[in-house]
């Protein structure tokens, strides 16, 4: 029941499906170990989501020195403005783009754009400065824009 929901979050934080499964399974283990702390009067999903996001942040801290990734070249291209075209992009394509981001950019992007954390909160969670958080978000968006353009241009019209 929560597999799909959990995977939808974990996939955005991991750089591959395997890493996402690792994050999700670790989160499930934490849920099993801490199920007594769960207040059954409150909805389960937010509690589970919190555990999952924290687990993903822990993975980020644990592995930030061993990630192998390549930053995308910043293409100076025209901004994509055709919402009608972009709306045709699938969830899988979106996840693939996010996974291509560096771990630092990806994590900040997820925490700020999807989870709604402020930069000062992200700075505390990731042990970075708020300025670095803002800079990472900016670079993440730049990279995503490049990828979006590439995806759109490669799509048959």
């Amino acid at each position: 029941m929560f597999y799909g929901y959990g995977m939808s979050i974990a996939l955005r934080y991991g750089n591959s499906r395997e890493e996402a499964v690792e994050i999700l399974n670790d989160a499930f283990m934490k849920v099993f170990e801490n199920i007594r702390k769960y207040d059954s009067k409150k909805p389960f999903k937010p509690w589970f989501r919190k555990i999952l996001v924290n687990t993903a942040i822990n993975h980020f801290h644990k592995n930030k020195k061993v990630y192998k990734w390549e930053d995308l070249e910043h293409a100076k291209s025209k901004l994509v403005t055709e919402e009608s075209v972009i709306s045709g992009i699938s969830y899988d394509e979106i996840v693939e783009m996010v996974q291509k981001l560096s771990p630092a950019y990806r994590t900040v992007f997820n925490l700020h754009v999807i989870e709604g954390f402020r930069h000062d909160e992200i700075a505390k969670l990731l042990d970075i400065s708020p300025g670095t958080s803002k800079s990472n978000l900016h670079k993440a968006k730049q990279n995503l824009r490049v990828m979006l353009e590439k995806t759109i241009t490669e799509k048959p019209s």
């Binding site: 939808s8 969830y91 996010v98």
Partner: peptide, 10 residues
């Protein structure tokens, strides 16, 4: 991305 993040079917 906010919109697409909710459209999962895994």
């Amino acid at each position: 991305f906010q919109q697409k993040a909710g459209e999962f079917d895994i």
